[in-house]
């Protein structure tokens, strides 16, 4: 019973992450910086990490990255999202369970590394090392958006935890 519950929640989180990615693709930020995004989908990857652990979070991430590239992306956007997503999840997973770090810090670290990965992919794909300068505005934006989505994940995790633990709902 508990496994079914976890699986269902995993699916809900993956669907939510996909929807947020879609909504985000409809609302491009009016910034002159390539690749600037809110990173809302990451809040649900973090939520999966907080509630269900690393393997579930990796599943949600994989579903989000693969499906959003398939539905509204390109093979190239898949590469960007995959590199950024893996780095981001690695950072968040490493910070998991540390008492002095809340989901907000986890999310900020994940968001900044996500952007670092994407900037490096852009430098390599375009053969233009100067693109690394864009990491400054992207990284600063990531601290802000990562902090907010971390807060969102923290608040959701608090309310959803009883559901995972199998209490009455």
């Amino acid at each position: 019973m508990r496994n079914a519950r976890r699986l269902a929640l995993c699916g809900c989180l993956a669907a939510g992450a996909l929807i947020l990615s879609f909504v985000e693709s409809l609302l491009p930020l009016p910034l002159p910086v390539p690749g600037a995004r809110l990173g809302l989908g990451n809040a649900l990857v973090l939520l999966a990490l907080l509630l269900l652990g690393v393997r579930a979070a990796a599943g949600v991430l994989a579903a989000k990255v693969l499906l959003s590239a398939l539905l509204f992306g390109t093979p190239l956007s898949l590469l960007y999202a995959a590199v950024g997503g893996v780095l981001s999840l690695a950072a968040m997973a490493l910070l998991r369970g540390r008492r002095s770090v809340s989901p907000i810090g986890q999310s900020v670290a994940g968001a900044v590394l996500h952007n670092l990965g994407q900037v490096l992919v852009a430098c390599l794909l375009t053969g233009t090392p100067e693109l690394f300068y864009y990491f400054t505005p992207l990284g600063l934006l990531a601290i802000l958006t990562g902090g907010l989505s971390g807060l969102a994940a923290q608040l959701c995790a608090k309310r959803l935890r009883p559901l995972v633990l199998g209490g009455r709902t």
Binding site: L95, R98, S100, V101, I104, G105, V108, G147
Partner: peptide
């Protein structure tokens, strides 16, 4: 928490 500020 304290670690969050350090990470930021």
């Amino acid at each position: 928490k304290k670690g969050d500020f350090l990470l930021i």
